[in-house]
Design a protein around this nucleic acid. Structure first.
Lengths: 205, 205
DNA sequence: TGATGTGAATAACTTCACAGCG
DNA sequence: CGCTGTGAAGTTATTCACATCA
């Protein structure tokens, strides 16, 4: 009964959600699969299939109630409550992500910072104290943080990952250009900016 | 004859390449599909299929010559020469990317900066002058820049994209949380950090 | 009537398995 | 002999097409 849902379906749900929130702000009350799907360049049948994994949320002959569908997708993605997130590696990229308002807007709050550089440990940035990477276990357990964002140098990535996992982290957003070894039950999404750039040039004339 | 290559194949080629460069640095001269594929958690047959789109590069019974395969993949991905890149939107994220050494390491040089904020225009950062966004056409044509990285606010993303395309840009790395409308012949990769984060929580217990 | 929900059909991608060749 | 290269088989994802029902 409990089938595995394609990761792409999960990503598209997050994309539908973003569009739906935009529509709700514009006071749109009802939308068809046709019009919602075209906003993210997907097909209407794809959108309906994506939802069909989780139930029936539309009204035949009418479409989907925007507010209701927002609530349903938030529930599916477990986005109902705000999530605390840890950021590991407070270098250039880490600092940029800290300043990036995008996460906050989607209900994520970076609420713990870690680094291994003694020059940084103890300093405050954006109102948050940078903790010693050695203290992840203590801090993450106390704060009940389950999500980590890794922006450390590639060479440290696996060690940091292992440490986070023993500290109770269950999901990782990885910005390092490394494939990370993880046990069953841990989820990783990797954002590999260099690969995205390299794979672009293939399409140049 | 000329079939379409899956984008995932192109991305994996970039990943193989990264591993191969690492191996070359370690003085490894020959590698099997088995051992190269496992480095990026792909299957050996997948790796061979990926290469088979482009030709025969291995030696039966032996494996692949590391240096030769690097050259082949660089040629496929058109990475033989250094590429100049423009960065549009010199805010927090843009500045972080500018400081990020990762691009340079892979043969990309950010060599033009643009913003629409008159307080920023004319200032120098990392030795580069921030140009007025209105001057993209002039600068990009002169510098023969074909790749743009967009780190502007989401609301400006489509306008900036249109402007880049009329200025001769052929490939875009998009960091804004927007689906961008583009004509045939232009390639976009989107790095949507908020979506990556939102799609992670689904897997939390 | 009109858009959803969904099996069936199709297409795309991945793995298998082995022939081919250094 | 061993590993590549590759058709065939298997699997997964997407689209089609229409029955269904507000």
């Amino acid at each position: 009964m409990k089938q595995v849902i394609p990761h792409d379906t999960i990503k598209r749900l997050a994309l539908y959600l973003r569009s739906l929130r935009y529509l709700a702000k514009k006071k749109v009350e009802v939308i068809s699969s046709q019009r919602l799907a075209e906003r993210i360049y997907a097909s209407p049948s794809q959108m309906r299939k994506d939802l069909a994994y989780f139930g029936e949320f539309g009204i035949r002959g009418v479409g989907y109630n925007v507010k209701k569908l927002i609530a349903e997708i938030e529930s599916i993605l477990k986005l109902k409550k705000k999530r605390k997130v840890a950021l590991i590696g407070i270098g250039k990229l880490g600092t940029a992500l800290l300043a990036y308002s995008g996460f906050e807007k989607f209900g994520f709050r970076i609420s713990a910072l870690f680094d291994n550089n003694s020059g940084k440990i103890g300093k405050k940035i954006f109102g948050l104290k940078i903790e010693d990477i050695a203290r992840t276990k203590e801090v993450l357990k106390r704060e009940r943080i389950k999500i980590g964002i890794i922006t450390v140098p590639a060479a440290d990535a696996q060690e940091v990952t292992d440490r986070l996992i023993t500290s109770g982290i269950k999901a990782i957003l990885n910005f390092t250009p490394r494939y990370l070894n993880i046990p069953e039950g841990i989820m990783i999404n990797t954002v590999d900016m260099a690969i995205e750039l390299e794979s672009l040039t293939y399409y140049l004339p």
